[in-house]
Design a protein around this nucleic acid. Structure first.
Lengths: 247, 247
DNA sequence: TCGATCGGAAAACCTATGTTATTTTCCTCG
DNA sequence: CGAGGAAAATAACATAGGTTTTCCGATCGA
């Protein structure tokens, strides 16, 4: 196993994207107690009904949150990338109401709930940044409701691809117009509320329209402005700092 | 105009539902600076793009949050009832990424952002309760993604009716099995990602199945357990305290 | 009290997306 | 290097839910 020397660096980076932190605040975040673990592809981090004692930071790799419906259908409600706190909610809410699972091999830092609460209230800037992170997540969730509820398949998928372009770029994984997306079409279907078959049709038609060029897991966006148009995508809801990508 | 003598009482009640507060904390919340206003039905509280200076508490009445798509379609992403902070997000996020509009005549208390931030960090219990409220909202949003993304129309609508049964009961408006829901079928359609026509069919079929009895804006749930079954509804995601309604 | 208006109901028809196969491609592992 | 297995592609067919329209009843303002 290989451990990062500074496992919490992605968290600092993420929080700084959201809210300014003094050098002391940054140092305090970096020195939060944490246990770093290498997780395998497909492993569960949280299961519905769990009462977690730790929150989990994605140091590298991808994770998804999902819910399983009574009839067995799955809905992915979030995709997490490096720097995301995968279950801040669980720092405060007692019972997990959904599952978190790795999408790839993943390096994770587990931080005790108590430590998170401590720093949140002893260092207001950190607390504000953490709170903001949860608010941004809420904002993304609202956009997903709209995406799934009111957009047709083409728009829906294009929107998702745009979102990833911005989010991955913001954390320095891939570039806005060329990134690796480690999701199968079935997983895309489950995040976008469609069928794998129809996701296939839709991706193909985006390619055919010259908007994207896919091969395996890599996505190349030929014209982000045009894809954003097709995907009815405006980035405000991501609440990214101005510097990253001109809108 | 008629002003409540204790306009912020519903907020205290709501926060207590989420997290215990000392008498001093409660008093501090009650004495937050606020401006109470009577709003008319249909009035906008926040518009996308606004940079709000105040957060708004629903003292009485209903409000909705919604997003408008590029093609003009609307998706309602939240319905707010008495005690809800309608735009806590706006206390921290700079630009509103959605609209908030009253659904009925509404009594609202506007609290300056700064006052909210102050109390959140000077009184950890209050801060924790507020943070928790935003987390619960996130949890509801995730459930809505799943509802809209992966459930058929009957299940979807039944689920929404169950959610209201619990939420309205929790704040003491109506009883779990009999409440007033001031939404038109068009508005229900926009929250559930369907067409008004199809919502009509669906509501009718719930009635026909003997699960509900509607008349005007009032909803009577004849058998909550059975409706919950049909609606694939489990209340955990609402994170209500145990006392309210046995699951 | 009367019309105007809005929401609900209902009918007929249509299409985007789902379903169920089958085939092909491309990794992975032995 | 070759076999096995997962994803991706494709095809043919099915349906849940959308669209459009018309009508009716109830509220509300004058």
């Amino acid at each position: 196993m290989l451990f990062s020397s500074e496992p919490l660096a992605p968290l600092v980076r993420k929080l700084l994207n959201i809210h300014p932190l003094s050098p002391e605040d940054r140092a305090a975040v970096l020195s939060l107690p944490s246990i770093v673990r290498q997780l395998e592809h497909g492993q569960y981090i949280v299961r519905e009904g769990d009462v977690p004692t730790h929150s989990c930071l994605v140091v590298s790799g991808f994770a998804i949150r999902h819910k399983i419906m009574g009839d067995g259908a799955r809905q992915i409600v979030n995709v997490h990338v490096a720097g995301d706190m995968v279950d801040l909610q669980n720092s405060l809410l007692k019972v997990a109401d959904h599952n978190v699972q790795t999408l790839t091999a993943m390096e994770a830092a587990f931080i005790p709930r108590a430590a998170i609460l401590d720093i949140a209230f002893s260092r207001p800037a950190v607390g504000k940044a953490l709170w903001l992170e949860t608010l941004v997540e809420g904002s993304i969730a609202r956009e997903w409701i709209a995406n799934v509820g009111r957009r047709n398949s083409l728009t829906r998928v294009a929107h998702l691809l745009c979102e990833f372009a911005y989010r991955l770029d913001a954390v320095g994984i891939g570039k806005q117009c060329n990134y690796e997306l480690p999701m199968t079409q079935e997983q895309i279907a489950d995040t976008v509320g469609l069928t794998p078959v129809h996701v296939n049709r839709t991706l193909k038609s985006l390619d055919a329209a010259g908007l994207t060029t896919r091969s395996r897991r890599s996505v190349v966006i030929n014209d982000l402005a045009r894809l954003a148009e097709v995907g009815d995508f405006r980035s405000i809801y991501l609440h990214l700092p101005q510097e990253s990508l001109a809108a």
